[in-house]
Amino acid sequence: MNVAKMIDHSLLRPELTTDDIRRGCDIAARRAVASVCVRPSDVEFAAAALAGTGVLVGTVAGFPHGDTRTTTKVAETRDLVDAGADEIDMVLHIGRLRDGDTAYVHDDIAAVVAAAQGRVVKVILENAYLTDEQKVTGCRLAERAGAHFVKTSSGFAPGGATVADIRLMRATVSPHVEVKAAGGVRSLDTLLTLHRAGAARFGATATEAILDDFAARERGERPVAAVTTTDGGY
């Protein structure tokens, strides 16, 4: 199991300095993770820092609330692609999903998928604000609109990834659409639990601790802790 290639190293907190972003990119390159996920203003910097490393540059659109106009999300996505982004994590319009305005939600996502010009698009549902029925609807709309991933959370809402949500999302979308867990993935045990539930990618800030723990267990230096099925983890 290549745990590193399941991790999107998250660098989204508003207080991060350029030095923090540089150190985060260094960690990502050294640990050979799947990607970094940086703030839009950091995309060019991260693309230059990670050139030739094999680590993808991800970023966010309509973040963290999803309530910007579709035209704004489209312009933002095009600009981010031009700046060097390989992956776009967009927030769907949470309020419109709760309204039941499925046409708006679908078209909003589809417009970003088109603007991404073939780059991977992950759709953040922000499950903390949704019923299970709304989560299912959001996942189906994201798939129909051409998204590559459905994602639990932005990390900035009152709750994050849960086992129940991962199972529900994995059961809802087709096999070619993957599930990303974000919000509360702070330990290897949490990551493994959510992976077994169906998540393929994980947003994490505790990347080094997770990978150090995995390496130690692989060497037999630490016992493999019992994997629980708690719905917590934010």
Score class of each variant (00 low, 15 high):
residue 168 L to T: 03
residue 207 T to S: 10
residue 37 C to A: 12
residue 48 A to Y: 12
residue 151 K to D: 08
residue 212 D to T: 15
residue 102 T to A: 14
residue 72 T to R: 00
residue 165 D to V: 04
residue 233 G to A: 14
residue 93 H to T: 01
residue 228 T to F: 14
residue 54 G to Q: 07
residue 131 T to V: 01
residue 74 V to Y: 10
residue 154 S to A: 02
residue 90 M to W: 00
residue 102 T to I: 06
residue 175 P to A: 10
residue 203 G to I: 00
residue 131 T to R: 11
residue 107 D to G: 04
residue 1 M to W: 06
residue 9 H to K: 13
residue 73 K to Y: 00
residue 153 S to A: 15
residue 86 D to R: 12
residue 91 V to I: 01
residue 161 A to Y: 12
residue 115 A to T: 06
residue 27 I to L: 08
residue 158 P to G: 05
residue 111 A to Q: 08
residue 203 G to A: 05
residue 152 T to D: 08
residue 202 F to G: 03
residue 28 A to Y: 02
residue 211 L to N: 13
residue 138 G to W: 00
residue 208 E to N: 10
residue 51 A to H: 11
residue 223 P to D: 09
residue 195 H to P: 12
residue 43 V to D: 09
residue 141 L to P: 02
residue 185 V to T: 04
residue 85 A to Q: 03
residue 10 S to G: 15
residue 181 A to V: 02
residue 132 D to T: 11
residue 223 P to T: 11
residue 142 A to K: 01
residue 200 A to N: 10
residue 21 I to E: 06
residue 80 L to N: 09
residue 82 D to P: 03
residue 2 N to V: 10
residue 58 G to P: 03
residue 116 A to F: 07
residue 138 G to I: 01
residue 159 G to F: 05
residue 15 E to Q: 10
residue 135 K to Q: 12
residue 163 V to H: 07
residue 163 V to C: 06
residue 12 L to M: 08
residue 191 L to I: 05
residue 180 K to G: 01
residue 184 G to K: 14
residue 31 R to A: 10
residue 163 V to D: 03
residue 229 T to W: 15
residue 186 R to S: 01
residue 184 G to W: 15
residue 232 G to S: 12
residue 33 V to A: 13
residue 86 D to Y: 10
residue 174 S to F: 02
residue 147 A to D: 03
residue 179 V to R: 04
residue 208 E to S: 06
residue 39 R to M: 07
residue 124 I to Y: 10
residue 74 V to G: 09
residue 12 L to F: 08
residue 160 G to C: 05
residue 39 R to N: 10
residue 55 V to E: 15
residue 161 A to F: 11
residue 209 A to S: 14
residue 4 A to S: 14
residue 48 A to Q: 13
residue 27 I to N: 12
residue 76 E to P: 02
residue 123 V to L: 02
residue 162 T to L: 05
residue 95 G to C: 07
residue 204 A to M: 13
residue 159 G to E: 09
residue 19 D to E: 15
residue 80 L to V: 06
residue 149 F to I: 00
residue 8 D to A: 09
residue 13 R to S: 13
residue 8 D to C: 04
residue 216 A to S: 14
residue 56 L to G: 04
residue 174 S to R: 07
residue 78 R to D: 13
residue 196 R to C: 04
residue 181 A to R: 09
residue 27 I to R: 13
residue 230 T to N: 08
residue 151 K to F: 03
residue 218 E to H: 02
residue 18 T to G: 11
residue 117 Q to H: 11
residue 116 A to Y: 10
residue 35 S to C: 09
residue 50 L to G: 08
residue 94 I to S: 01
residue 122 K to T: 00
residue 163 V to F: 08
residue 167 R to F: 05
residue 120 V to H: 09
residue 128 A to W: 00
residue 55 V to T: 14
residue 143 E to P: 07
residue 150 V to M: 05
residue 167 R to N: 15
residue 162 T to E: 03
residue 41 S to Q: 15
residue 135 K to H: 15
residue 18 T to K: 13
residue 45 F to Q: 14
residue 207 T to E: 11
residue 167 R to G: 12
residue 228 T to R: 12
residue 115 A to C: 13
residue 173 V to S: 11
residue 23 R to M: 03
residue 112 V to C: 02
residue 137 T to Q: 10
residue 130 L to P: 04
residue 140 R to T: 01
residue 121 V to H: 03
residue 217 R to D: 07
residue 142 A to T: 01
residue 168 L to F: 05
residue 156 F to W: 13
residue 22 R to E: 11
residue 224 V to G: 00
residue 187 S to T: 06
residue 43 V to P: 07
residue 103 A to H: 07
residue 109 I to R: 13
residue 124 I to E: 09
